[in-house]
Design a protein around this nucleic acid. Structure first.
Lengths: 155, 155
DNA sequence: CAGTTTTATGGCATAAAATGCCAATTGTTT
DNA sequence: AAACAATTGGCATTTTATGCCATAAAACTG
């Protein structure tokens, strides 16, 4: 799909505030409400906009500790991978999991209330099949987080 | 702030779909629209809900490559840190930056179009003052990403 | 435990927004 | 320049948001 400057402005605004009304949005991007709504709907249908979500205060929800967990798998077969990945998908406190290059195989981002809870979760991770070489990095402070994607405005 | 089961249900729904209308939301959590809206407003005012954002398709926006960049600072003074952090805040392709424990000092998450663009960005990072020991980990695949926070439903 | 106060809820009326439709404008092509 | 295609803006209708008030539920007090 080809996006023009208006689309980028719309995406910028919705990244900053996903609950703008269409009237507000159309005003911010200098377009009348009708075509603005049409463009948003199309961006959603084309899959450029994947969805909308509330971003929540982790501390308020007793999830103030973030840990990056790097690990490797003992076996590198399809079976080991998919079994491990399925397990990780089922763990709600693991909020992201990437297959990465480098010394580790997987990098998980984990949120917990505190060290005590992290210990429990770490034990669960250790017990997953094929898991080896776990290394934890604790987040001391978020310098920058949940930033919007940089949109290379063309037109 | 004390949250009850209704609040958690509301947060759950808004994490899954931040653009639910209040009518839809109130229906999903079994509450009439008036008190539902009041609760949402209060959650926003109290800072439990930090905001709403559209989540976008990185590939569609030419940002299909994600890289974790670990690095250390040569000097560990206040000045070195704040200068580095300010630089990082000004780089749009760095979408998150954490101060972490372990061998690295900082962990950046960077989005770019491809390796060519990454090389350019890496050079920028290398030239930042005090930066040492840069290590890049490329994301091969996202097993799980942008997951909602796990809400420990009480009541 | 009854009475009182506080807090939250549900319904209603009004204001605002979303949505679909159509004419008009813009810009493209030949 | 004419014809065609795509996009826009305005309007009417439906849906939603919002503020207000009476009622119900919960908490507190003596």
């Amino acid at each position: 799909m080809k996006l023009d400057g208006l689309d980028y402005r719309i995406l910028d605004q919705l990244q900053a505030n996903g609950r703008l009304t269409n009237v507000e949005l159309s005003d911010k991007v200098n377009l009348s409400p009708s075509p603005c709504l049409r463009r948003v709907k199309q961006l959603e249908e084309e899959g450029v906009i994947l969805g909308y979500r509330a971003s929540l205060n982790r501390v308020a929800l007793d999830l103030g500790m973030t840990v990056f967990v790097d690990l490797r798998l003992g076996h590198h077969g399809d079976q080991a991978s998919s079994q491990f990945e399925a397990s990780v998908l089922a763990m709600p406190n693991v909020i992201s999991c990437y297959l990465v290059s480098g010394t580790a195989d997987y990098r998980l981002e984990v949120v917990v209330k505190d060290l005590q809870h992290y210990e429990l979760l770490l034990r669960q991770i250790q017990m997953l099949p094929f898991v080896k070489d776990i290394h934890s990095n604790f987040v001391i402070r978020a310098v920058k987080g949940e930033s919007p994607l940089p949109l290379n405005t063309p037109t």
